[in-house]
């Protein structure tokens, strides 16, 4: 095949590349589900990865969650006071943090921290032939490296999201307490007054989906990195961008679905 460098050819090549990428990702997801339930399970590696993912993101999530809690409460107060509804503040904050901010914020932070580290680690293993070294030792690298990381991310991101919600509410409480001297129990009772089981379920489910997305995108980009150190940076970068994009996309879809369920 002679390479044609006209504009049309370049565009059609890009389109081919795009669809091949989508097909590759689809096959990757299928392979994950094919292998995740078949032994050996590598529990120890899953625990190590969970620890890595959880601990590495904890500090950032604590700080971000706390600050968002304070700032969001502070900024909302003025609007509510205009309507003489400042006492509704905990309720508003509860809805905002539990339904939206907590899970999405956690997902974005993890997409940045976890997605890039998985992408960089796996791609550098790929370009230095460590993945091939596993294969020739009769160890399934997909199972040992990919499945364990995806499982760990799927478990840890919802846990981190719950933690983020909690920290965010604490931040909010501190702000409310400083302004209105509301007690801790009253604040939390108000914050959860409009929260239903569906909300809690949707928030957890959402975070689980985000965790899975972050894990699978990081692994897909890392595992399929092209040769050379250039490929490592590229894989890490693309993993973050794609994971963030997908998190937003999934957020939009899940909000629609959970609203539909709520009104049903």
């Amino acid at each position: 095949m002679i390479k044609d460098h006209t504009k049309k050819a370049v565009i059609s090549e890009r389109i081919d590349e795009y669809f091949l990428g989508v097909y590759g990702a689809y096959k990757f997801v299928l392979r994950f589900f094919k292998e995740v339930f078949v032994p050996p399970y590598h529990f120890r590696a899953i625990i190590t990865q969970s620890y890595e993912i959880g601990i590495k993101s904890l500090a950032l999530i604590s700080v971000t969650g706390f600050i968002i809690g304070i700032v969001f409460t502070k900024q909302s107060r003025t609007s509510l006071e205009d309507f003489g509804a400042a006492s509704w503040l905990p309720n508003l904050v509860g809805i905002a943090i539990i339904r939206a901010l907590g899970p999405v914020l956690t997902a974005l932070i993890c997409a940045g921290k976890v997605g890039s580290s998985i992408g960089a680690e796996l791609s550098s293993m790929k370009v230095t032939e460590q993945i091939e070294a596993m294969e020739v030792s009769a160890i399934n690298p997909f199972k040992y490296l990919v499945v364990t990381r995806i499982v760990a991310a799927t478990i840890m991101v919802p846990l981190l999201a719950m933690y983020c919600v909690f920290i965010g509410l604490i931040g909010s409480y501190i702000n409310v307490h400083a302004a209105e001297t509301t007690s801790f129990t009253v604040f939390f009772k108000d914050a959860f007054s409009s929260i239903t089981f569906i909300d809690l379920f949707a928030a957890t489910a959402k975070a689980t989906v985000y965790g899975f997305t972050i894990g699978i995108i990081g692994c897909y980009k890392g595992f399929n990195a092209t040769k050379g150190t250039h490929g490592v940076g590229k894989a890490a970068n693309e993993a973050v961008v794609l994971a963030m994009f997908l998190v937003f996309l999934e957020e939009v879809i899940i909000v629609q679905v959970s609203n539909w369920v709520r009104n049903y």
């Binding site: 293993m125 230095t128 032939e129 460590q130 091939e132 070294a133 294969e135 020739v136 030792s137 009769a138």
Partner: peptide
């Protein structure tokens, strides 16, 4: 593969 040993050009140690 278990009956074959493979020493890589770049060593390929798990770092």
């Amino acid at each position: 593969r278990l009956r074959i040993g493979f020493s890589f050009q770049g060593s390929a140690l798990y770092d």
